[in-house]
Design a protein around this nucleic acid. Sequence first.
DNA 1: AATGAATGAGCCTTCATTCAT
DNA 2: GATGAATGAAGGCTCATTCAT
Lengths: 217, 217, 217, 217
Amino acid sequence: MTRKRSVVTKEKLLAAASDVFLEKGYRDATVAEICARAEANIASVNYHFGSKETLYQEAWRHSFAQSIKAHPQDGGVSEAAPAEERLRGQMTALIERIADENTKDFFISQMEFVNPTGLLAEVMRSEFVPLREKTLAVVRELLGPQATDRQVAYCESCIISMCLHPLLVHRVRKRAKENDMPVVIDDLGAFAEHVTTFALAGLAAVRDQARQGEGRA
Amino acid sequence: MTRKRSVVTKEKLLAAASDVFLEKGYRDATVAEICARAEANIASVNYHFGSKETLYQEAWRHSFAQSIKAHPQDGGVSEAAPAEERLRGQMTALIERIADENTKDFFISQMEFVNPTGLLAEVMRSEFVPLREKTLAVVRELLGPQATDRQVAYCESCIISMCLHPLLVHRVRKRAKENDMPVVIDDLGAFAEHVTTFALAGLAAVRDQARQGEGRA
Amino acid sequence: MTRKRSVVTKEKLLAAASDVFLEKGYRDATVAEICARAEANIASVNYHFGSKETLYQEAWRHSFAQSIKAHPQDGGVSEAAPAEERLRGQMTALIERIADENTKDFFISQMEFVNPTGLLAEVMRSEFVPLREKTLAVVRELLGPQATDRQVAYCESCIISMCLHPLLVHRVRKRAKENDMPVVIDDLGAFAEHVTTFALAGLAAVRDQARQGEGRA
Amino acid sequence: MTRKRSVVTKEKLLAAASDVFLEKGYRDATVAEICARAEANIASVNYHFGSKETLYQEAWRHSFAQSIKAHPQDGGVSEAAPAEERLRGQMTALIERIADENTKDFFISQMEFVNPTGLLAEVMRSEFVPLREKTLAVVRELLGPQATDRQVAYCESCIISMCLHPLLVHRVRKRAKENDMPVVIDDLGAFAEHVTTFALAGLAAVRDQARQGEGRA
DNA sequence: AATGAATGAGCCTTCATTCAT
DNA sequence: GATGAATGAAGGCTCATTCAT
């Protein structure tokens, strides 16, 4: 049972760490506060994880696993479904994942993007690359065989951005209780719908361009 | 001349502060390093700005003014030009502004979005709202009179995101020298072109939807 | 068998403790490392010895007993041998004891001399006094009846120092692998020989002085 | 005057550090206590020296310079004096230096010998080598041209040890107030005299041996 | 006006020891 | 009897800010 108790403490520390790192960032988060929230001893972070840095990495990995489990990348759409549907599934899943208040890894990732501590570089890369490959595959299918790799990459980048960034702003505003600002996303389903429409139209335009480019070449 | 020297010191502090805040974030940036880079006395930050917080705000404002001046929002397109052209101008200007290595305010803004110190909230709001209004106006024009405010807002949000986020990732990778990762944006002009095509197609699709929605309503 | 296992653990702890205390000193040696080297549980030090302090004392006593057993004080010289020979035996034994890589107590003693924890005071005194008495006796015999107690004490102190200190430096240098420094003692037998010659000559000089002092008095 | 104040604080810190490091050793000495004794702020060690390690090195260097200045190596004996006198001068100076209650560097050196932190290796080597050279020169002169380098080295080592070690024990006992133990060195002058007699006799014996060795060879 | 020595609050980490199992 | 998870006290160090000059 001692083993079990250890697991519980570790779990509580990971949860508390995710929260505090999300709220304050790596530097402003203190080990003391994390331990207090986890109702653990001040030394338990170092006992269980060795350092604040390691806890940071583990907490992110933990959060990522949780949020991906709650919102699988395919959005519940079968692999056999048409590419449009599969893209819609991925985009909806991404939007819902980010909008979910339990999702913490995304914000920590963003922080890391802009103000890299370098601590998550490896962890993030190993987790993100597979996701990106999946999306690239669908985009490539939708753009058709004439599309260049660059076009595929640009489109994927645009599509992901359209899902991520508005939600980022949205959640930040909710957190900051900036209720005076117009809440951009008042209806998550409507937003997902909108983004999908926008994206499919964009993809179609690029596909047409690719065909013309092919013709010219 | 003392007056002049004081001005010079202040200017150097602002420049150094932008750099360091960009590199390290608010918390990890130290007053000592900022002063060292500005070749100023350790006490000069407090002497000239009263506190690290104020310096942060001033440095951001300073950087923002510089980058907007270097890349005006309209992208050099006349107000008399057609809406498509004006949108293209705004998007290109935004992309170029963010891609410009001298642009520091954007990254600090992103940091602030994700890990708010709260110190820039006021400053950013007053600077961003006017820019957003301009973009909303063009988008509204392109979507036509049937488009709802929500549709306009969603589209604006998507378009801005498509410009911002890929460039964010791009600059982060360049800074981190992650040359093993595929550089998403290898040609700035091509990317701007691509994003515009994508966006105009998306807008057109939403406009059509709006007309149908109108018809149904 | 459990009893036996316990004894083994205790023995391993003593051995590991001697090593670690020798390498790092009392303060820098950690209970964790000692237990790790002894392949014992982290709690076993307190379980078997009650405290780090007690382990320190026991480890020293253990090491001392071992090294004295390996190198008996008399150096194998019969009590019936002439005083010169008995002194030579004691000096050689001391030198060989200190030079022996298995001897750890001596270095811990030196540490204690200079930076006393106070923990070994009692233990060391009880072990050293008898050794010293033996040496004093031989020295007194060699100095003759005219020698004062002070002269005997001074000579004993010089003789012991001549054996101890050069070997201390020697082993320290070997440990530190300071191979660039001239290795003072390249031949242990030659050194023992040299020291004995030196000491006997010194003793003879002091004895002559003592006789003259007697004559004058 | 600000500069002067800084120097005063630094000096006080060095003095306090020497004391505390001497009393407790590197590890058990706390920055807090050093600062308290120097009547300085807890942060002043890091401000003036950067770290506890650097302070340790500087404090030793400082102490060494002081004690060598108070007790010059030659003991006030002219270079023109006969070798016997010069050796006597060096030995007396060494004994008096170590016996001087203000001498702290010696004990820190001993600590470092036995339980090396590695922090003083460089510093000590650069200071000790010149002293040793001087002593070797006199010893070589006294042993005559037939003496081998090994004989010179062994003799020097014995002579220095005869001065150092008894005084080490002496001071440790005084500090520990082990008044029950026989105080070995009750008269410093007498001890210096004794050691010199002992050493010169030893040297003479070795010189004779060297001559015979020469004759045999 | 400007400097730089000094401050003190707070953080991460270490480690001998304890206690429930 | 033996384990190992957990504790809490304490230490070194950082850094924005202050203050005397």
